[in-house]
Simulated assay, not measured.
Amino acid sequence: NYAGMHTSPRTQESYRMEVEHHLIPHLGAIALCQLQPQQLQSYYADALKKGRMDGKGGLSARTVLYHHRILSEALSHALKMELVARNVAKAVDPPRPRQVKIATMALEDIPKFVEVVWETPYYVLFFTALFTGMRLGELLGLRWRDIGLDSGALFVVQALYKRRGVCQMIEPKSPYSRRKIALPSSLSLLLRQHGAKQEAERILLGKVVSGDDLVFAYVDGRPLDPDTVSHAFVRLLKRAGLPHIRFHDLR
């Protein structure tokens, strides 16, 4: 399983969805050794016109380009394994998506957002996201042992990933994702207070907080659901009267 050894679980799931829903139905009947550039070019053109699964038009140029990259990577591996004589995807011109301006939270909007989330269970989580640039999965996978409150730093060593309704811990998506992040003093203080509150809540449940416990979790220690956090983020943006952005855009 080439993808299983070289890609993250999230990427594998994404590949699987695109291959099963689009590539196999349109190209699966063609033998690998008989695949020709014009067949790929024809598929890209059709996908742009009428590729949506709901029948309501075509796929975006960005999605079709993603299909091209999946095919090209697979064919490159097949070439190494001597299953094909060449990578026919290299001879095809994929669509070029238009450059889209990435929305981010404006500096002047941060106080408005912080004011709205102050009384919510997600305040410390969102505050940490704003000041560290961590991905949602990285935040939800953060353990107390990964934070040095006295040294003012935290280490990203794992991430929470939800696949088919099941949450699991995975390694960072790339070597560069495994990193050390400096903590501003205000965030260190907030995390220290958050830890004390979490410890008091666990004591009421007859439990103790250990270094392996998650920093951001339900009261009983279970990991937060990333979908629940994302939906809460969108609702709070709306309540604050701020433009819609993705949680990822806080980075």
Rank of each mutant, 00 (worst) to 15 (best):
Q158P: 00
R235Y: 07
Y218R: 14
S174F: 12
F155Q: 09
V64E: 06
C167V: 04
D220H: 13
S8H: 07
G195R: 15
V234Y: 05
L191N: 10
G51K: 02
A129K: 09
R163G: 09
S186V: 14
H26A: 14
L224R: 02
K180T: 00
V209Q: 14
S14I: 01
M53N: 10
V124H: 00
V88W: 09
P111H: 01
H194E: 10
R10C: 05
L189V: 00
S174L: 13
N1E: 12
L65D: 00
Y218W: 03
F113W: 05
S185D: 03
V116P: 02
E20I: 08
K56T: 08
A3H: 00
M105Q: 05
I24C: 12
P184A: 12
H26I: 03
A45V: 01
G148I: 09
P184G: 10
A47N: 00
D220Y: 03
A74Y: 05
W118A: 09
L191M: 07
V114F: 00
G221K: 08
P94F: 11
Q12S: 08
T132V: 03
L79M: 06
D109W: 05
A103W: 01
K112E: 04
N87C: 07
V116E: 05
R222T: 12
I170A: 14
A47G: 07
A89L: 05
G51M: 07
Q38M: 13
D212P: 06
F113C: 01
A31K: 15
V208R: 09
A91L: 15
G165V: 02
Q193M: 12
D54A: 10
T11A: 14
K162T: 08
L142E: 03
G221R: 08
P37F: 01
C167K: 10
E119V: 07
L140W: 05
E171R: 14
K90E: 09
R69P: 01
